[in-house]
């Protein structure tokens, strides 16, 4: 899987590259509009991560170029918080998803995975993790062959973990994944705890071992060991 990261801020770019490489993607980078434009014209990518404010041009024009070329690449727009009209414009231009800065890296992984899944398998694929099987097109979770009935939030939570195996997910990032901007409520961490408790219980009832580790005070991790 090849991803192009278009981001002008070097420190942020290296973080993104580093993170996505850990996820197993091949990453290329572009720091300016011109560089990015050249790369999307020359090479094929599975996914393009576009920052909208770029030296030398607007990221939205890159999206237009990609769509005009009928590129199969998924497009994830990254932009400033509060620039809500960019979101509308970006999605209308055909971008797959939109992420506002600053974001959690785990969230980025989850979004890219969802885009790639939709693009490449039209959603008809399965996610496997040890004894777990998830069929995203049917929102179905199996332990072995047995379906596990999950609530919507529990299911979203599990998908988030599966997108980031062996990675510490902070409580804040989980809260934001589940509740978006509305996560700003003091008790949301308690609810994560409750959801996780229920999720673990339901999985264990079907015979799956507890894959989720608690990292004290910080968050949780889905462990493959």
């Amino acid at each position: 899987m090849k991803i192009l990261i278009v981001e002008d801020e070097p420190a942020l770019r290296t973080s993104l590259v580093d993170h996505l490489q850990r996820d197993g993607y091949r990453c290329e980078q572009a720091a300016t509009y011109a560089q990015a434009h050249e790369k999307i014209k020359l090479y094929r990518y599975d996914c393009v991560l576009v920052d909208l404010t770029l030296p030398g041009g607007n990221g939205l024009d890159l999206v237009r170029t990609l769509k005009a070329d009928q590129s199969p690449a998924g497009v994830l727009i990254v932009s400033a918080r509060g620039a809500l009209d960019d979101k509308v414009t970006g999605l209308a231009l055909g971008a797959d998803d939109y992420l506002t800065k600053p974001f959690h890296l785990a969230e980025l992984t989850a979004r890219i995975q969802a885009i790639l899944r939709r693009r490449q398998f039209q959603g008809h694929n399965e996610l496997r993790f040890r004894a777990l099987t998830v069929r995203p097109d049917r929102a179905q979770v199996l332990v072995g062959d047995e379906p596990v009935p999950l609530t919507r939030k529990e299911y979203e939570l599990l998908l988030y973990f599966l997108a980031n195996p062996n990675r510490l997910l902070t409580k804040e990032s989980i809260a934001e994944h589940l509740w978006g901007d509305a996560a700003d409520t003091a008790d949301s961490f308690d609810f994560i705890y409750n959801h996780l408790k229920n999720l673990r219980r339901k999985l264990q009832e079907k015979g799956a071992p507890d894959y989720i580790r608690t990292v004290y005070g910080v968050g949780y991790e889905l462990s493959s060991e």
Partner: peptide, 14 residues
């Protein structure tokens, strides 16, 4: 402020 914040957050997560 936004960009430094994004960098800070990304680095701290790492």
């Amino acid at each position: 402020t936004q960009t430094p914040l994004a960098i800070l957050q990304a680095k701290l997560e790492r």
